[in-house]
Amino acid sequence: GTEIELESKNGQREHYTATSEDEARKIIEKAVRRGIKRIELRGASEQLIRDMQEIAKQIGLQYRTDGSL
């Protein structure tokens, strides 16, 4: 699965493990709508990382991946 670590603007951290790319995408989209400061992805697919970079650029988000592409 993909591990997703979120940090909201007030510094609250949340951790999710998505079993599918679809689920990961839903978690990320929800977080973005809620207003999130930072997202870290571990074990994400190349496609998901590309999507994440696109989203991050659009809304000026900090993100990090573990680089295991």
Rank of each mutant, 00 (worst) to 15 (best):
Q58N: 07
I55R: 03
M52I: 15
I55D: 01
G35I: 02
M52S: 02
A56M: 05
I28G: 00
R50K: 12
R13F: 11
A44F: 06
Q62A: 07
N10L: 07
I59A: 15
N10H: 08
G11S: 03
Q62P: 04
R42C: 06
R13I: 11
D22T: 08
K57I: 09
L48C: 03
Q62Y: 12
G67R: 03
R38W: 15
K9C: 15
E23H: 06
L48Q: 01
K57D: 09
Q58I: 11
I49Y: 10
E46S: 11
L6C: 06
I28V: 07
G43M: 05
A31L: 10
E3F: 13
S68T: 10
L41E: 00
I28P: 00
G43S: 05
R42V: 06
G11K: 02
E46W: 09
R64Y: 15
D22L: 08
V32G: 02
S8V: 09
T2D: 01
G11F: 02
E21I: 09
E23L: 05
T19D: 09
Y63H: 08
G43I: 01
K30G: 11
L6A: 02
E14Q: 09
E54G: 05
E54C: 09
R42W: 13
M52D: 00
D51K: 09
Y63C: 15
L6S: 01
A24V: 08
R13L: 11
I27Q: 01
E21C: 06
E5K: 10
I55A: 03
Q12F: 13
I36T: 03
S45F: 03
R34G: 10
E23T: 04
K37I: 13
E40P: 00
I39A: 01
R34E: 11
R13S: 06
T65K: 07
L61V: 06
E21K: 02
E3Y: 14
I27A: 01
G11A: 04
Q58M: 09
I59R: 13
Q53M: 14
I49D: 05
Y16K: 01
Y16L: 05
L48K: 00
K57V: 06
K30L: 14
T19F: 12
E5W: 14
L6T: 07
R34K: 10
A24S: 02
K26E: 12
L69F: 15
S20D: 09
R34P: 04
A31Q: 03
Q47V: 06
A18S: 08
I59S: 15
L6I: 15
S45A: 02
I39Q: 00
T19G: 10
E7D: 03
D51T: 13
K30V: 11
E5Y: 14
T19A: 11
E5V: 14
